[in-house]
Design a protein around this nucleic acid. Structure first.
Length: 275
DNA sequence: ACCTACCTGGCC
DNA sequence: GGCCAGGTAGGT
């Protein structure tokens, strides 16, 4: 489900529901999803903890715990959902974690493919244990300037799309928004980063920001199973230009979109609009 | 910088 | 049955 815009939507939905809430009981139904610490310590560490707020770094959801340096971290993988439910609502099919809250409701994690993961620990601790990776800069917000991006991408020597998918280069893009950003920038995903002209790098930087901000405004892309923290689908899938449209006509010029395999992922682009 | 594995499930 | 799917990690 989740790239930056989807995670951002979930985080902004969860924040008012979880900030200040206390975790009462924790039921871990699929211990394999806990990467750190041991499942028993993970459960013990969450019980009784109070959530300060909910935020995001790349595709990771961060919930710092009050009066402690520790944070509860969730990655949604491909099909994860983190949602607050009424205690009596029936469980979703693949529910793997249940945490009762002090307001009578329940935080639940469900994940059909089980690619998500949970962490609990201080920032340094998680990095030292190598369970939280070094992430590149956030592509939106004020932290990354166009100049920074220019310098960053010029140093790489790889296809543009592989760079965009690499979380240690830029944090938050996945298969949908990498393809959409390349289209919006008029660049073929196969172009090599170190061969881009200054204006092409500029266009790419602008395209990444525009594509992500538009999707956040639409509350994310619900291509398959993604729904927000209230169970509601996003609308951005209606505006996607290339993702999932291989073989169909380009919405801008009518040329059939090409599909190929790049960096292990299905990639779609317009041979006419993208050079 | 690539491949493959990790899972379940939908579609052909 | 085989292939595909928004994710990353671990080993070439």
């Amino acid at each position: 489900m989740p790239e930056l815009p989807e995670v951002e939507t979930v985080v902004s939905d969860l924040r008012p529901q979880l900030a200040g809430r206390r975790f009462e009981t924790v039921s871990l139904l699929l211990p394999r999803l806990v990467r750190y610490p041991e499942p028993a310590a993970f459960v013990a560490g969450l019980m009784g903890a109070r959530v300060e707020t909910v935020s995001r770094r790349g595709k990771y959801i961060l919930a710092p715990l009050a009066g402690s340096a520790k944070r509860f971290v969730v990655h949604l993988g491909m099909t994860g959902h983190l949602r607050v439910w009424g205690r009596d609502e029936p469980l979703a099919r693949h529910t793997h974690l249940r945490i009762t809250l002090d307001d009578g409701r329940e935080l639940r994690y469900d994940d059909q493919r089980q690619f998500g993961r949970f962490l609990l620990g201080a920032e340094d601790e998680l990095r030292t244990a190598r369970v939280f990776p070094r992430l590149g800069p956030e592509p939106i917000g004020d932290s990354l300037t166009e100049g920074d991006f220019q310098a960053l991408i010029r140093r790489r020597r790889r296809p543009v799309k592989s760079a965009l998918l690499d979380q240690s280069f830029l944090a938050g893009l996945g298969n949908i928004y990498s393809d959409e950003a390349c289209f919006a920038a008029g660049l073929r995903p196969t172009r090599m980063t170190h061969r881009l002209a200054v204006r092409e790098r500029q266009a790419l930087f602008g395209a990444i920001g525009a594509v992500l901000r538009a999707s956040i405004a639409h509350r994310g892309s619900s291509v398959a199973s993604y729904v927000d923290a209230f169970g509601v689908a996003g609308r951005n899938q209606e505006t996607l230009q290339v993702y999932g449209r291989g073989g169909r006509p380009c919405l801008r010029c009518g040329t059939p979109l090409k599909r190929l395999r790049l960096a292990g992922r299905t990639t779609v682009y317009c041979p006419q609009c993208q050079r």
